[in-house]
Design a protein around this nucleic acid. Structure first.
Lengths: 237, 237
DNA sequence: GGCATTATATGATATAAATCATATAATTTA
DNA sequence: TAAATTATATGATTTATATCATATAATGCC
């Protein structure tokens, strides 16, 4: 797939309130914000920003799904966070005035706003409410990261795999059938999140499939036996 | 060791500016802050706060070292962060209005200030500078956590062990001899940080000792060959 | 100061999971 | 649409590391 960069579009229709952190703004503030943002449409697989880059603003996902990845040792990719529509991305480097320590890549076609850096700083300085919303977001991400550390330290691959599926479900929810996880990741990407090899990931998904915990249809994973999957995610010995 | 709780003392002498985030305050602000804080002396091994507890304020480490731990699966302890004097603790739960997701335990005798919750919120609302300092702190912790995730996902225990020693050195520095890491952790605690078994931790430290990367004297670890330790911390195949 | 407890050390064994290998299925793209 | 590439699948083998076991050293305690 060729990535020629996002297609910029005008931004009149996209409702920034979609993005949870901006819920706290009033009508006028939203109007003002809209003047200082622009929208872009990304194709699946495009980079929103890249590791070591300098932040130019805050990204708000209007639609689509994003993975935040970093290049580990030996060039191996690590998925650090998974982001859904309504979320903001790139706030960490922006707030701490650092370069990005990870890249953001679209997992599907996406519509993303970028809010001008200077304007964003003005907005959070003048609106403590907004600031607290962003802080809460970072706090949440820190908690999730530290939970992941415990999991990686103490659980085996099978448990982490079950946990990852539950995490995907919690993040992206189900499709209309109420059991298919609403995201398409390659086995390699799942492995890059779980911290295992692609082969082990494939093998475990096959096993879960055979054990009727899940069912597989291409990249689509359905949770067939949630109770047993939860059990598998915990220590079972 | 019996833990009877901290000994409260008056606070006139402790300089809150020690704590990096408060460097941005001016003379009057510091004076005001001092009215709203109190100091306490903790013995080694005491809890500053505990998992699931509700934050009553912000803790500032005047002296001493702290570990933030969480109880993982099967009751196994996970060390999430290591904190030194000058740092603040307990800000995450406080800012996001949540219960603590980890406990804070002193690694040695410590003097710790607690800043009243309400006052702290007033302070960060009225001083964007202070707010940004706290945000930078959280941002840093998030980065460290995500680096740890990559390490846990992609490195083997030997590499992580070498990395952990370098991390301890980076956090607490050397003693006067310029090679002994200035912190005393049990082998089990190191294992709980690295994400390995106590036996593997002991074995690897022994190996590093035999290979003249480090030298051991009780709980004190000296880095003898920094260059080789750095090599060991990275992928070497 | 001696006894009990806990921490450190090291060997032996078992096992989870990586790696290597090969096959088939599914996508790209020419 | 065929060829090429990439993703998924699964078997065989190796290896890192946990676990179990036992010994010694260090520390806390009455």
């Amino acid at each position: 797939m060729k990535n020629n960069g996002p297609i910029e579009t005008s931004c009149v229709h996209c409702n920034v309130r979609l993005n949870s952190v901006f819920n706290v703004l009033d009508e006028d503030q939203v109007k003002d914000l809209c003047i200082h943002k622009s929208c872009a449409v990304y194709k699946k697989g495009q980079y929103v920003f890249t590791e070591n880059g300098l932040p130019a603003g805050l990204f708000c996902i209007n639609s689509g799904k994003i993975k935040l990845t970093t290049t580990g040792y030996d060039g191996k990719e690590q998925i650090l966070r998974l982001v859904k529509s309504g979320d903001i991305v790139g706030y960490r480097a922006l707030l701490s005035n650092e370069r990005y320590h990870c890249s953001a890549v679209t997992l599907e076609d996406a519509s993303i706003c970028i809010i001008d850096k200077k304007y964003f700083f003005d907005a959070i300085e003048s609106s403590p409410k907004l600031m607290f919303e962003v802080v809460k977001k970072m706090s949440q991400d820190l908690k999730v990261a530290e939970d992941h550390i415990v999991s990686l330290s103490q659980k085996n691959v099978r448990e982490r795999m079950a946990e990852a599926l539950l995490f995907l479900k919690a993040t992206y929810g189900f499709e209309e059938d109420n059991q298919t996880i609403n995201v398409s990741l390659s086995r390699e990407e799942i492995a890059d999140y779980v911290g295992t090899s692609t082969e082990s990931c494939i093998r475990l998904l096959s096993e879960f499939n055979n054990d009727k915990l899940i069912s597989l249809k291409g990249k689509k994973i359905s949770i067939v036996n949630l109770q047993k999957l939860i059990q598998t995610a915990n220590i079972e010995d």
